[in-house]
Design a protein around this nucleic acid. Sequence first.
DNA 1: AGAATGCATGTAACGGGTTACACAAAACGT
DNA 2: ACGTTTTGTGTAACCCGTTACATGCATTCT
Lengths: 332, 332
Amino acid sequence: MTTIRDVAKDANVSVATVSRVMNDNGYVNPETREKVKETIARLNYQPNSVARSLYKKESKTIGIMVPDIMNPYFPELVRGVEDYLIEKGFTTILCNTDEDPEKERLYLDVMKQRYVDGAIIVSNTLKRDLIDEYDMPIVALDRSIHENVPTFMVDNTVGAEQATQHLIDIGCKRIAHVRGPEHVENATARYEGYYKIMQQTNGFQEHCVVQGDFDQKQSAKAVKQLLQEQPEIDGIFAGNDIMALGALKGAESLGIKVPQELAIIGFDGIDLSSMTIPELSTMSQPIYEMSTQAADALMSLISGQTADETEHIYQPTLEWRQSTDRIRKEDN
Amino acid sequence: MTTIRDVAKDANVSVATVSRVMNDNGYVNPETREKVKETIARLNYQPNSVARSLYKKESKTIGIMVPDIMNPYFPELVRGVEDYLIEKGFTTILCNTDEDPEKERLYLDVMKQRYVDGAIIVSNTLKRDLIDEYDMPIVALDRSIHENVPTFMVDNTVGAEQATQHLIDIGCKRIAHVRGPEHVENATARYEGYYKIMQQTNGFQEHCVVQGDFDQKQSAKAVKQLLQEQPEIDGIFAGNDIMALGALKGAESLGIKVPQELAIIGFDGIDLSSMTIPELSTMSQPIYEMSTQAADALMSLISGQTADETEHIYQPTLEWRQSTDRIRKEDN
DNA sequence: AGAATGCATGTAACGGGTTACACAAAACGT
DNA sequence: ACGTTTTGTGTAACCCGTTACATGCATTCT
């Protein structure tokens, strides 16, 4: 590997001059600059980031912590972050936490030891004290982790309200909800949106809510049982797209036709939702946009700016597709 | 940040002694060791990886290069690698290349500058000279890139043969193939497997092969047209699961029943394939296993061992699901 | 007893890029 | 003509963990 000293010797200048040329700062005579540039090109010199990091106490690296990259919601999110950051000269370390506080701590330790400049975090479990302990620029994505950490997420409650309202609009009389895990805030927020609309229309019934755990098979099972017990259910709002697919399966196993006899709507808008038969209506999140903007906010924090506002709430948009394709309300 | 010198001063020993305690090498008096350990714990000292990297010219970091993490085939692969490596104290840098040689070069540069210890690469485009230029331990995953780079992939041709044979076994008389892009070797290998079986059974016909580009919509369109032109087609082998879903859509749009009138089988065995209605038969790849073993091989290369064998070929296994659920051959 | 070996610890150089500081020469001001 | 800035370049310390080498003492061997 060519070092800055090799270049300096070859070009008959000092290492300081080479460094100044590389970083375009300080005074350098134009002729000297050209000579050094020529040498750099000729020797194919590429500065050593590690040495630079050691002195500058920064690494041009950020960590992205997600529960599990295999969950179809996260790849797009990760991709958005990675795309944005490579453009800025940053590399991205991937951390799969499985929502395990132990792993979260492990990754935070690793990051700190490597002078990682900041982190974008998706987590329910991360505690305040842990964040304070590692004082490092942090941005929360998809889920809020702390009131003074900049957060980028959709309005889950309003989205859920719209999904529920959509089912009402297309004529559903008895609407059920497949909810995500109790300990996930987003799941609860979506449940609350459903609850609110059902209350308003005097239709809330405890036994129309089942637990789906954000899992397809679990959801299919729960929905099947639900539909057997309450055949009058004609609409299902699932807490995410994966569970909506499960609902689709549950209905199918009973020979119930979607959307004719049962309308189903999901949440998230992952690619998969448009690939199924029937195509799934869903509340679509601007995942890519949220993630690039979260990355942008992190860049600001790293460059020393203080966060202007902490909460960035996006509105999910209704993707009206086949699984709720019934009477379209004309008078609206 | 606490440094090794802080610890040394506090414990009244030299930095060398602290280093020896940290790394468990060299001679250290048991009492001294305890004292130093106590100090390390008390000051919560965590060594600086960057300084270590600079001296050792290694970073305990590897890069994983995939075309696009949003392609549902890759998350599991990346997860397998990441899981294995974090266990060994390595972190993983994610690189999305979009199969763009420019980006591949960019990432390789970045890796070199950061003393990245090695890379796991999924690429069709990476050229030999580039690999030689950055002499760095490299392992190829999913696609071979060079004959002396250890490679972990499935036998695409045999898998395709089995898929095609499966369609014959269940009684298909006229079998079409939706193939992936020309420039992707795997797509061609799968085509060849299909071709071979069709030839053997005297059934190969040029016009039963359509281009699907590994894309769902493109595949749906191509399949729809194909089925309109040749209604006698009763089996489709799609070059991957995404295109098989497209085929499902294409059939559905014509009211053709799967599997009764048309059997469809895919390739890869991504999670999605079991979530659809009907569930998709597919040639399933041991993705997670392949990726952990690739990571293991990379570890060996990094620790200086030379690769024992370069090609590690896995056999995909048939997942017989609803989309080909017809006459099951009893006499076999 | 003297040499050789093992044990224990410390000093300082090293890795490679950055920058504070020093110094010198040129340009500018009055 | 002399003082002040600006420009241009070099030297060496710094970031922090690792390790070669030196030193000193305690055993062990012959």
